[in-house]
Structures are given as structure tokens and as C-alpha cells.
Amino acid sequence: MHYRHSDTVEAEVVPAAAKILIAGGFGAGKTTLVGAISEIRPLRTEETLSDRSIGVDDVSGVDSKTTTTVAMDFGRITFRTDLRLYLFGTPGQERFWFMWDDLTFGAVGAVVLADTRRLADCFAAVDYFEHRATPFLVAVNCFDGAPRYQPEDVRIALDLAPDTPVVLFDARQRESVKKVLIALVRYAITKISGDPAYQGRPLRS
């Protein structure tokens, strides 16, 4: 899907809004993470079904239906009136991938949630952010009863770049989530300051 942005004008004071994406497979803990640290806000998006989703969704019997409603995990942290952080859980199902470019545009970075019981679920997200050169880290949600792995094992299993952070955390714990977000922002800063060519370039295809 192709998007174009509105012609816009510079304002003298624009409330600063940073955006972090929370990606990962179904049940990896996206909703839990967002709820642990931010004010959960209702957000729906009504989207036209893309060609891709038409193949995936069973649209038989709904001939005239060309849109789908997606309820999104959306959280907001208001630090100050002029500084907010938004957390967007990216819809995991393949049929919603057409929304990812829109979500990723202008994002500070992404947290890819990994569940060691279903590590393959986050391959797609890792590929996506690597391809878009969006700073991301892999956060291994330590579920009760799930096998514990060292971050290095996860790095190898996901074939991550040497500098991509891998952290173990608990999505239910506010302090733990806070550390993950701090690690991501730090990493994004090193990416920006280490790469002068980085312009936060538009990520839309």
C-alpha cells in the first residue's frame, strides 16, 4: 500500500511525540507490555483489505466487505505536556502487514518480543526491521515454565547482527519493561550518533 503524507507546514511549537513499536507473535506479551508501563488507550483502525489479505482471509459470503476493523494495542506515556511516548503493538497476523509501513514511519525504534517456546514467531518482525533499518532490540519475555536461554543463544537462533541488543525481561513488570525501553532508546541513540547519514528517513515503500 502506498501512502503519501500531507503537505505540511512548520509550526513554531509542536508537541513532541515519539513512537515505539512493539512487535512479536500472537501471545508473545505485547498487550501485557503496553499495559505494564503506559496508559492504555482505545484505538481502532478501519482499513481497506489489501490484495494480500484477501487471499488470507476467508471473505466468502462477505462479497461486499472490503474493510476490516483492527483493534490495536496502543499506550501513551505523557512525560510532560510537550513530550509523549506512544507504544503501538503491531498487529501480528500476516493479513495486517499492510499496516506496518504506516506504523513504522517516523518510529524511534521497535521492541521485538520473543517467546522462547515459539521463537520462529518473531522471524518476520526481525526481517522487517532489519530491512527497514529501524533500530530494534529483541526482548525475551520470560514466561513461567518456558525454557530459559541465554541472550547469546537467542542471538544465534535469530541470526541477529552482533550489535542488536538481546534482553531478558518480564512483560508484567513495569520496571522490567522500563529497562527494555531505555535499552532500545539508548541503542537508537548510538545508531543515530554513530551514523551521521541516518536521517530518520521515511520508511514507506
Partner: peptide, 24 residues
Amino acid sequence: VAPPRGHETNERLLRNVLDALQAL
């Protein structure tokens, strides 16, 4: 109005967010 973008703006925003997160 689209948020201003660019290398310096992004870095400033990130540093502000980092400070704010640490102070949470």
C-alpha cells in the same frame, strides 16, 4: 503538521525520551 524530522531533531527527541524514561 508533521513532526519535524532530521538527524539533530531525532537525536534531541531520543535524548529527551531517555531522560524522561529514566525519571519515571
